[in-house]
């Protein structure tokens, strides 16, 4: 398949050479793909503006690999962007709001880290598009949209934190201790030393974000939001085994 077409969200861009750019895309059917956009940094480029982080695009790519074939070292190598149409310039709309743009950066980085090249991740793709749309619509605070995306993306990856029962013995909750390494809320009997003791409202907020209970999430107070976002970030980074670069820069004003 020298040419193929797919729907994608641009996760990250890197400069390449004089005027080119390497774009990392999360596609609907082909998973994570890295491709070169030739000459897109020139002001005369016809699709440079569509290849910005957070853009939802319909893209045509050229690959040197046949269907199912892998490149050296199991890597796909770089495809070539030949055409793009915009389906939603979410990134461009959000860059004029610094708070929401930092949330977009963290969402895109998480999506990149949770996917493998060439392995389809349809649920994560739909989750990503939904999160970007929610940020553009601005119906919920950007911090909550980000935390909802992170906790659902973890759930999708098989790392859903236990919130209503003990992560170790499954005893029904609510429990007052939370331990990232144990996998979430833990009962008094199973509680490892050094476990956090979050407010009940913070754990309830995490559950609301996980299950899409926005009425409850929007009604939460600042203290719960701060505590819940800390627990979500700690849980995610523990499973990723490496910190997310963009999370410390998220503007939660």
């Amino acid at each position: 398949m020298p040419l193929y077409r797919d729907e994608a969200v641009v996760l990250r861009v890197h400069k390449l050479g004089e005027a080119d750019r390497i774009v990392t895309l999360l596609t609907r059917r082909h998973g994570r793909v890295r491709a070169v956009g030739k000459g897109v940094r020139r002001t005369t480029s016809r699709f440079g503006a569509r290849l910005e982080p957070g853009s939802h695009i319909d893209v045509q790519l050229h690959t040197r690999l046949a269907e199912g074939q892998q490149g050296p070292g199991g890597q796909r190598g770089l495809d070539l962007v030949t055409q793009t149409e915009s389906l939603g310039a979410y990134g461009a709309q959000l860059a004029t709001d610094y708070t929401r743009w930092t949330a977009v950066s963290a969402i895109c980085e998480t999506a990149e880290r949770l996917t493998e090249e060439g392995e389809p991740a349809l649920r994560l793709f739909l989750l990503l598009v939904g999160a970007l749309r929610a940020l553009v619509e601005g119906t919920h605070p950007s911090g909550l949209v980000l935390d909802a995306f992170l906790i659902r993306a973890m759930s999708n990856a098989g790392w859903e934190p236990a919130l209503t029962e003990c992560a170790k013995c499954s005893a029904p909750g609510p429990h007052t201790a939370f331990n990232v390494a144990a996998g979430g809320a833990v009962c008094e009997n199973c509680r490892p030393t050094g476990s956090a003791r979050p407010q009940r409202d913070s754990v309830d907020l995490m559950a609301a974000l996980l299950h899409g209970d926005w009425a409850r999430a929007d009604g939460s107070d600042d203290t719960s939001r701060r505590e819940a976002s800390g627990l979500v970030a700690a849980h995610l980074q523990w499973h990723l085994e490496r910190g997310l670069r963009s999370l410390p820069f998220v503007d939660r004003v």
Binding site: E52, G54, A92, A95, Y98, W101, T102
Partner: peptide
């Protein structure tokens, strides 16, 4: 620069 990083930097400075 008229790209997203440049735009966000300008937004931050203006704020």
């Amino acid at each position: 620069d008229p790209n997203l990083e440049g735009e966000a930097t300008a937004t931050y400075l203006a704020r």
